[in-house]
Nucleic acid binder design. Structure first.
Lengths: 231, 231
DNA sequence: AATATAGTGTGTATATTCTACACTAAGTAA
DNA sequence: TTACTTAGTGTAGAATATACACACTATATT
């Protein structure tokens, strides 16, 4: 650790795997780089950490610049520090994942100065990515796949009001397996962390499903009990 | 992420929470600092990452310098990047935990140049630590507490040959709760990842227990199946 | 008005896993 | 030989997980 502080020319950056759920698909936000190295390649959004900001702050800033959103669910998941991961010098990057409620609305306030555009891309259909970003993505995806089984992160991706079918679809795409409808509902409702609303789905051409909300209050009460979803 | 690389004066360090199990107690290795800041305080072992080494390599190097051991089980668990965590400047630190087989033998090849001594200390009896090292320790401990329930990391702390009682004790100190002997043994043996040896414990003044080995080969075969220990 | 369509919503039986619980066996020390 | 200490073992009941299929409802179409 820290001693009398010789100064090195190392750079920190943050990279973000930003998840969204839309159209029954799990997506991440990719940017197209407009600078060398890897000009015109797709990459994870990220940027350099300023001298006087914490890494969490840097992650929030990057997300805000890219999406115009604040108070997003974010979590640091791994730090990548191979010597040659960046062709122009030593860059250590701290990776975060974030969860965004798309609500069918994929508009973003575009876009910082090093990217020409940002696009939501299905995780099943990713292009080649710059740097070691494929590795970073895989690890982030793995992380949420684990986490969804014991933490209520799915609700961060859904609109405030959602149907049980939507919730189940989301579990299915993240866990990459079919779940049984009856068992899923039984288990989910048993936890008692969903509030059933008096409202129904609108604009569908078939029987409308009931809407539910995630009940944070009840969840917090159960919090010490670990919940296991999605098995 | 990475663009044309302005250079900042930031420092990377590595800090290690090094676990050992001895005497029925879970311990970590602390060093006493012989330099400012926090001279004479206890701290987690750590050091600065060199320009031309990966962070994993730095972690291994630090461990080797401190203990003379290589090929230790290590895992990165979190990166601490608050602006003011180091009184003398911006230092971002990547934290690792490591698991060492003490085998009753607590000798270490002492000790690098910034520490006057290194001591194994029970996790239940830690002194105040320098910097934010208490936070780092807590997070690392939490991490192995979770991990032990689905990965066979406990065996990294035990001697090659161990008794089921030793294994259970280790689970108990990490999970911080009593486990039922019969249920523990049933479950553990059921996994089929322990090899029963023809040997028994020696030097005890009561009935000697059978010795077991962790069977890595069998474990790897089951690997995709997630194991859950210790519930 | 009748019908087709598409997704909603529900129960039960079986298998598996978890939990609680207490005594005898074996080896050592005196 | 006896006293002591830990090793080693089974079963019954509760809880949880899994497998599985059909009737209902709202809308769109004719």
């Amino acid at each position: 650790m820290e001693t009398l502080l010789p100064k090195f020319d190392s750079i920190f950056s943050i990279d973000c795997v930003i998840f969204g759920f839309d159209d029954g698909e799990l997506k991440i936000l990719l940017i197209e780089r407009n600078q060398e190295p890897f000009k015109d390649w797709w990459a994870l959004p990220g940027y350099i950490v300023e001298q006087d900001e914490s890494i969490d702050h840097a992650a929030e800033r990057i997300l805000y610049e890219l999406t115009g959103l604040r108070d997003i669910y974010m979590d640091q998941f791994y730090t990548f520090g191979d010597v040659n991961r960046h062709p122009q010098g030593r860059v250590i990057t701290v990776a975060y994942y974030a969860m965004i409620r798309l609500n069918g609305n994929k508009e973003l306030k575009p876009v910082s100065n090093y990217a020409s555009k940002a696009v939501w891309t299905s995780v099943n259909d990713l292009p080649k990515l710059a740097f070691d970003h494929e590795k970073i993505f895989s690890r982030g995806f793995e992380k949420i796949r684990n986490k969804i089984s014991y933490q209520p992160i799915a609700f961060e991706l859904l609109p405030e009001k959602f149907t049980l079918t939507q919730l189940q679809q989301l579990y299915e795409v993240i866990l990459n397996k079919k779940l049984d409808k009856r068992n899923f509902r039984k288990k989910m409702l048993n936890y008692g962390i969903l509030k059933e609303l008096d409202e129904k789905q609108k604009g569908v051409s078939y029987r409308a499903a009931k809407l539910y909300k995630f009940d944070k209050r009840k969840y917090s009460k159960l919090f010490h009990k670990e919940l296991t979803f999605g098995k």
